[in-house]
């Protein structure tokens, strides 16, 4: 029986996550809607994450360009640098890096915030006072995370491509117009749309895991730390798992 304990705990965890998710979908369509709280969460989760994700995207674009250049140079196709970098950023690196940074910043803060509220019994107090804590705390956060990550990813892609443009201009010279002409000449809807759609799932997963971990934390302050930590770890892994699923699905649908 002891041998099956980890499996059993894994299965019970999965089951409670599934119930948490189904409750989220039940609550989201039921009035009353916490619009003001949702907008505040959007501001906190989305707008305040922009500097971090923007810097990350910029550095990724610049570094990727500089790293790819010697290889492309040895093949004599340095002129294809914008093509390669734009495909890499838009299809994979932009969404995944943004999601990972987002998970690190948002999932942990959700886990810690909701966890401390849970252990200080603020959630219970909220329930007593007649406010639906799930609607007020979880739905707004998860929805904000789901909608803000795509926005952040688009901006991060744009900043990353600008970084790539600067990276190209370190060794070679190209105009911004030509660079973006080549980028958009390369990109197809099949590159942009699946990448954008999967960021909604990333955002949802990050939000829901962060909230679940915080909402179900226990054992005092130690539980809060653990909730924050496991929220980041699990949501990062889930981002990659969703990425794997997304590439399989786009491949099956022939969008790749």
């Amino acid at each position: 029986m002891k041998l099956f304990a980890p499996i059993r705990s894994f299965l019970s965890e999965t089951g409670s996550v599934a119930r948490f998710v189904s409750r989220y979908f039940q609550e989201i369509f039921q009035p009353r809607y916490e619009v003001r709280q949702f907008i505040r969460q959007c501001f906190t989760i989305g707008y305040k994450s922009l500097p971090l994700i923007g810097i990350t995207g910029f550095i990724m674009g610049l570094v990727l360009t500089m790293q790819l250049r010697p290889t492309l140079l040895s093949y004599g196709v340095v002129s294809k640098l914008p093509v390669m970098v734009s495909l890499a950023i838009v299809r994979e690196i932009g969404p995944v890096i943004s999601a990972l940074i987002f998970a690190g910043k948002i999932s942990s803060s959700m886990g810690a915030e909701l966890g401390s509220m849970k252990v200080t019994e603020q959630i219970d107090a909220m329930e007593v006072s007649g406010t639906n804590p799930f609607k007020y705390l979880v739905v707004t956060r998860v929805l904000a995370a789901t909608l803000m990550l795509p926005v952040l990813t688009v901006l991060s892609d744009a900043i990353g491509l600008y970084g790539s443009y600067l990276g190209v201009n370190i060794k070679d010279h190209t105009s911004l117009g030509l660079f973006f002409f080549e980028v958009f000449n390369t990109l197809h809807f099949g590159d942009v749309l699946p990448a954008t759609i999967k960021t909604f799932f990333f955002g949802f997963a990050i939000g829901i895991i962060g909230c679940y971990k915080g909402y179900n934390s226990s054992k005092g302050t130690e539980g809060v730390g653990r909730a924050a930590n496991s929220a980041v770890v699990i949501s990062s892994v889930v981002v990659f798992i969703i990425d794997l699923l997304a590439v399989q699905i786009t491949d099956v649908l022939g969008l790749n």
Partner: peptide
């Protein structure tokens, strides 16, 4: 700020 942020991305 949020509106600017979202509309620029959109």
């Amino acid at each position: 700020k949020l509106g600017l942020f979202i509309s620029s991305a959109v």
